[in-house]
């Protein structure tokens, strides 16, 4: 693989206009290699969530260039960005964000639905994804019938069911206890090393960041440091 998978150059993001305008990102330069596991850290308001939204093509930068596989993402239309998310990206959120009153299986099927896959293929793929997160037996359960850790695992199954290139996780362990958090991290680590999915994860906890190979620290809308860990916690 020549060149980075993701390349940010001079990314800025300003919210609002005039005197109340707030610059969340003040010029980010960052390269992310394919297959990397990146922990994004930094205090609240340092711009890490804003950057994750831009990386996830949910938001567009005010200025700067965002290259995904060498293509300029910042110039894409809303629909094109949706298609890019559909094809290459998976999302895991702090609050799980599963559809309520909908079974785990149907939740995992959802991204395949928008890919236009047939019902049978959808179900098989969704079941396989649930098996990978160890929840095959819970396929019929709705989020309300699952624990927090289980819900997050369903969310991870939903993110990886499309076999994405990049998985974006925004504080995936933020609502979980340490034991559950470790399980989630090991799961992510495994998808990173086994399936080669590039993972970008925002976290506040050093212990979770220790699973990642690279740690990017944000401060005041700028990248403070990029460190490669010699010995990340193994899966």
């Amino acid at each position: 693989m020549t060149g980075p998978l993701i390349s940010l150059r001079g990314i800025t993001k300003t919210f609002g206009e005039g005197p109340t305008a707030f610059q969340a990102l003040r010029g980010i330069d960052l390269d992310i290699r394919s297959g990397d596991f990146v922990a994004v850290m930094g205090p609240s308001g340092s711009g890490k969530s804003t950057m994750m939204n831009i990386l996830g093509c949910l938001d567009v930068p005010t200025s700067g260039a965002y290259l995904f596989k060498g293509h300029h993402v910042e110039q894409l239309t809303r629909d094109e960005r949706a298609l890019l998310r559909r094809r290459y990206l998976g999302f895991v959120f702090q609050g799980y964000n599963l559809l309520a009153r909908t079974s785990a299986l149907e939740n995992v099927e959802l991204p395949l639905l928008y890919r236009g896959e047939a019902k049978k293929a959808r179900q098989e793929a969704a079941l396989a994804a649930l098996r990978k997160v160890g929840l095959e037996e819970w396929a019929d359960h709705t989020p309300a019938q699952l624990s927090g850790g289980q819900q997050q695992r369903v969310a991870i199954a939903r993110a990886i069911v499309t076999e994405p290139e990049v998985l974006l996780a925004d504080e995936p362990t933020g609502n979980l206890d340490t034991e559950r958090s470790r399980e989630i991290m090991q799961l992510l680590k495994r998808f990173n090393s086994d399936a080669g999915i590039t993972i970008l994860m925002v976290t506040h906890e050093e212990e979770m960041a220790a699973f990642a190979r690279t740690t990017v620290k944000f401060r005041d809308g700028l990248v403070e440091s990029v460190e490669d860990r010699k010995q990340p916690v193994p899966a």
Binding site: A82, R85, R86, L89, L99, A100, L110, P111, Y114
Partner: peptide, 16 residues
Amino acid sequence: TREIGIRLAIGALGRE
């Protein structure tokens, strides 16, 4: 709204 957000995030088009 949240459900719509989830759908959009995982790649649903506006028209869908």
